[in-house]
Simulated assay, not measured.
Amino acid sequence: MPEFLPGNSVTLLNSGQEYFPALLQAIDQAHREIFLESYIFADDCIGQAVAAALARAARRQVAVRVLVDGFGARDFPETFGPLLQAAGVQYLIYRQEVARFRLRRHRLRRLHRKLVVIDGRVAFVGGINIVDDNNAPAALRPRYDYSVRVEGPLLVPIRQAVRRMWENVAWASFKRRYRLPDHDPCPGCPESSGEQRAAFLLRDNIRHRNAIANAYLEAIHGARESVCIANAYFLPGFRFRHALRAAVQRGIRVTILLQGQTDHPLLQYATQALYGALLEEGIRIFEYRKSFLHAKVAVVDGHWATVGSSNIDPFSLLLAKESNVVVDDPGFARELSQSLEAAMAEGATELTAGDLERLPLHSRLLRWLSYGLVRLFVGAAGYGPRHWRGEQH
């Protein structure tokens, strides 16, 4: 079960228009240390602005450590490495790709977290990469996503997580034991900053293999009124689908907001193969077609809410390193719920069984072929049907 800590202040940030001004301000106010993790660190106006802010901080003698994924940010050493190193920023690459990408389990284990921790007093957790919302094909602009700004006792486990990840990647890179100096185990002393109960969740292959999936399942099993999920890549296993079906059977309103515009057609087609069964079970499905939905959030019963990096698909729930914040607070849940309702009203279309029946046969076959290919990829990575069903081992 998630370990909820009281006394936090968690602020919802809608897409890059709210996230990046808050992030840049926090970086410019840093005094001691900055940890930044991102799957993508793009060479665009946003990436350049964040890199410049990190360089300024390093020149102020702030200890700045940047960790990016070796596939999602594979050009980072060439685009930003020289600038940041010259300023005194330390950076590491998680599983750097030096050869042709092959479908092997360790190659699919990516650093998908988007975390920033500054002075042990403020953190950012969510799904937003270091990339301009409009850095996308015209039909996908702007990205629609969420992050949260966190202050309070929850900073302790978040900071521990980024420090541990840095030390582990440094050890793997230098092939020797590595520990960061830390004379103050909790710089900034994150005392109570608000009234919100919140938990920090990780997904990795050691102690937290099922933490995020189990938190979702626990919330769905305990739902009494409503479940609303917005997720970019949604391909749940048996246990997750069974939990949603059981919730509907108990009279719970279950709504899912998914991508209508996508950058990964294979995954979208695979998800659409499940639409018929989900609709038949009484689950409402909306596709966001105004732009590119990249969110990974949910609200249950108007008090439980989560924002993070984890999709509900086998790649996030079985392979990638992910992080989510769960907030048990009616005010925060109401704000996120209202934001999702506005997004559905302004840019989404509800699907019906009739919409599926009108699809031509070749289109339906394409969706089931895509579903089979995704299952094949997961199996080739070393995870068979039992893993995808979400069974504990």
Rank of each mutant, 00 (worst) to 15 (best):
S147L: 03
N129G: 02
N134H: 02
R107N: 15
R143N: 06
M165E: 13
I158S: 08
L111R: 01
L115T: 08
A161P: 09
G120S: 06
D133S: 00
R159G: 11
V125M: 12
R121Y: 08
Y146A: 06
D132G: 03
G126L: 07
Y146H: 12
V148L: 12
I118H: 00
A139R: 12
D119K: 13
H112E: 04
R149H: 12
V162P: 11
P137T: 14
G126H: 06
R121L: 14
P153H: 04
F124P: 14
V125F: 06
I118R: 07
P142T: 01
I158R: 02
V122W: 04
K114T: 02
R113W: 01
F124D: 09
R164E: 15
A138Q: 14
D119C: 11
V156H: 01
R143E: 07
K114L: 05
V122L: 09
L155R: 01
N135W: 04
L108P: 02
F124N: 14
V150H: 02
V125I: 14
L108Q: 02
R141M: 08
G127W: 08
A138G: 10
V116K: 01
L155E: 04
I128R: 06
V148T: 11
R109G: 04
W166V: 13
H112D: 00
G152H: 06
F124R: 13
D132E: 04
L115V: 09
V150F: 02
R159V: 04
V122D: 00
G127R: 07
G127F: 02
L140V: 06
I130V: 14
R121D: 01
H112K: 09
R143L: 13
D133M: 02
Y144T: 07
R141C: 12
P153W: 00
A139I: 10
A139H: 13
P157V: 12
A161R: 08
A123N: 09
V162R: 11
A139Q: 11
P157W: 04
V125K: 06
V150G: 05
D119F: 06
F124G: 10
E151M: 10
V125W: 10
F124M: 12
A161Q: 14
